[in-house]
Amino acid sequence: MPCVWPDGTLSSSGRLLLTSVSPDSTAEDVAATTGIPLYRVRSSLRQLLEAGFISEQGGRFKQTKEGVEKVKADG
């Protein structure tokens, strides 16, 4: 599901996904935590990555500084 609007606002699923990304999360971890189908998690993580809210290394994700601030700002 689209999770980042063009103006950088997060959709409800985007916010859920971003808050579910803890250091070293895999897409499978996020799918298990949120109950969102894995294919949608993979697609949404790609969007969060492009928006700069998370970073990825070797299939593991973590929030970036911008991501942490976004979670705080969105309450």
């Binding site: 599901m1 689209p2 999770c3 894995l38 294919y39 949608r40 993979r42 697609s43 949404s44 790609r46 969007q47």
Partner: peptide
């Protein structure tokens, strides 16, 4: 309708 998807997103299913 669920955003931009790749075939690879379904890997494992």
């Amino acid at each position: 309708t669920h955003g931009k998807l790749r075939l690879a997103d379904f890997e494992g299913s």
